[in-house]
């Protein structure tokens, strides 16, 4: 019997993929992501980490792009190309880790708040609403200021500020699914909480969570770059945000050092745009209500 189920799922996955691939924006985003991920993975293999070390930088600082340094050098004489390349890794890792954290919290809270009802769910929802309106950046700044600097802090700060949107979405979807008569049928057949959540709610909510994840990664990466720009990032690692922080602190604007400013920012834009495009295309494919509208 399971053979039929798997056959169905494969067919459904193929159909979803075909529809997704038919959307140029989404496909472009996916290709962009693949390229960026590949570059991030290749960095230690094709480049030399020691180029990031300030003490070993030999080149003249603030050099404009040249044949030797394609994207010029920074205030310490390090290659901007190398810095940006390595920055990809931290930005991606932080963005993904923070997203996993926030989506996990959001999904659990959202389903719990919708499924169980009663005062516990009311409290949970009030709690979510409170965090939803709280400006997430202000909270993230506060958290990363009082906690010791490091990647973990940044991930935590983003993770615990970004979940309420997911929770609300999941809650709304869970409520919508649970209002459908097939839930009542499952209960009438004798199914308990575990059965209803596992067999009916989760499969219906997960596609939405997946879409939400790709969109959350986008905002998590922006948030990471912002926090690092404000100097709250891990001082021992190079990320796009920390590069821009250095650029701002050392006066790249007044030096007209556009080559130090443009690449890291463009990195953020590309990754965020790629995730957003993927997410929007997925949303249209997986959310039948939106089909043919966007």
């Amino acid at each position: 019997m399971t053979a039929i189920v798997w056959q169905r799922r494969r067919a459904a996955a193929r159909a979803t993929w075909r529809e997704f691939a038919a959307r140029r924006g989404g496909l472009a985003g996916l290709i962009g992501l693949a390229v960026i991920t590949l570059l991030a993975l290749l960095a230690p293999l094709v480049t030399d980490v020691s180029g990031l070390d300030v003490t070993r930088a030999t080149a003249r600082p603030w050099q404009p792009p040249s044949a030797e340094y394609w994207l010029g050098t920074d205030h310490n004489g390090r290659s901007v190309l190398l810095l940006t390349w390595w920055g990809t890794r931290v930005s991606l890792v932080v963005g993904l880790a923070a997203t996993v954290l926030s989506v996990l919290i959001g999904t659990v809270v959202g389903i719990a708040a919708a499924h169980f009802g009663g005062w516990a769910s009311a409290v949970l929802m009030r709690f979510t609403d409170f965090f939803l309106v709280l400006p997430s950046m202000v909270l993230a700044i506060a958290l990363s200021t009082v906690l010791p600097r490091g990647l973990g802090t940044i991930v935590l700060a983003i993770g615990v500020t970004a979940w309420p949107a997911t929770a609300r979405l999941v809650r709304a979807q869970t409520l919508a699914v649970e209002a459908r008569p097939f839930i009542e049928r499952a209960q009438a057949l004798g199914g308990g909480h575990g059965h209803v959540i596992g067999r009916h709610v989760l499969p219906a909510v997960l596609p939405l969570v997946f879409v939400n994840t790709t969109l959350t990664v986008a905002s998590a990466i922006v948030l990471e770059s912002t926090l690092s720009f404000l100097g709250l990032g891990d001082p021992t690692r190079v990320s796009w945000g920390s590069l821009l922080h250095a650029a701002n602190v050392h006066g790249a604007v007044s030096q007209r050092a556009w080559w130090f400013l443009v690449p890291p920012g463009l990195g953020v834009v590309c990754v965020v745009l790629a995730f957003t495009l993927c997410g929007r295309a997925l949303e249209t494919v997986l959310n039948p209500r939106l089909k043919g509208e966007r």
Binding site: V5, R180, P181, F182, E184, A188, G190, H195, R199
Partner: peptide
């Protein structure tokens, strides 16, 4: 129980087999 609208009484993702076997499995 037999519900009014069979379209919404069946989970759209479940095949006929899964829908009928649901009670047996529970």
């Amino acid at each position: 129980l037999v519900l009014q609208d069979p379209t919404s009484a069946l989970n759209p993702r479940h095949s006929v087999y899964e829908a009928v076997a649901e009670g047996l499995r529970i």
